[in-house]
Computed example of a mutant assay.
Amino acid sequence: MTSKITVLVVEDEALLRMNTVEELTDQGLEVVEAANAREAIAIFQSGKRFECLFTDVDMPGDVDGLELATMVKDAWPPIEVIVTSGHRNVTHDDLPPRGVFVGKPYSLDTVGDLIRRLTAASEQFHA
């Protein structure tokens, strides 16, 4: 039996976050949610481990999703990072190593498939 892939979803728009959490959970992923980068950092500092971070770029507060992605990747290199935005054009240079950008609007089926592909590749890479 394989364990569930654990994903932290960071999105400040409550309805979008709730829908994302529900859809990804229905796809068999274990999902934890945060409304902003500071909340996400506190969750990471609690010691819970994640295979993937899925974060929006534009959020209220002093840390945006790109900064969060870099901080998390620096602290926990094996994690896969997916960044999304409907307002900013994110380039490969903006992302942490092996980070992936998905523009809004996105298909949650596509996001779920991407999470599974990235984490499967990561398991092979770190095995």
Rank of each mutant, 00 (worst) to 15 (best):
A34Q: 06
L95S: 13
F54T: 13
S46E: 13
R49N: 13
F101R: 03
T70P: 00
P97R: 06
Q27T: 01
A14W: 03
L16M: 13
V81W: 11
V9S: 04
V32W: 06
V81N: 10
T91S: 15
T25R: 04
F101A: 02
V21R: 05
E13I: 08
Y106V: 00
H87T: 14
T6N: 12
L66E: 10
T91Q: 12
M71F: 05
S3G: 14
N89G: 05
P97S: 04
L68W: 09
V81D: 12
L108W: 11
D62V: 09
E123K: 06
R117I: 03
E22M: 11
F50I: 12
V72W: 09
T6R: 15
F44I: 07
V57F: 10
C52I: 12
L24C: 08
D12Y: 04
M71R: 14
G99E: 06
G86V: 09
D109G: 07
I41D: 03
A34V: 10
K48Y: 08
G47Y: 09
R38F: 03
A127W: 01
S122L: 00
V31D: 02
R38K: 08
T91M: 10
L53S: 12
S107F: 05
E39G: 04
A69S: 15
E11H: 11
D56K: 08
M1G: 15
P96N: 06
F54P: 10
D93T: 11
A34D: 07
E51F: 06
E80I: 00
F54R: 10
D64R: 01
V90T: 09
V90Q: 12
D94M: 02
V7P: 02
M71A: 11
L8S: 07
L24H: 03
E22N: 07
N19P: 00
L118Q: 05
M71W: 06
V90I: 15
L118A: 01
F125A: 14
V72R: 04
D94S: 02
S85I: 10
R88A: 12
A40G: 06
N36C: 11
L53K: 11
T20S: 15
E80S: 14
P96W: 09
T2Y: 01
H87C: 02
K4V: 11
M59A: 11
L8R: 03
F125D: 06
Y106C: 03
T25I: 05
R98T: 14
R98M: 12
G112T: 13
P97D: 10
M59C: 09
R17S: 12
P78T: 04
L114N: 02
L68Y: 08
P105E: 08
M59T: 11
L66S: 08
V31S: 04
D58I: 11
Y106F: 15
V21T: 11
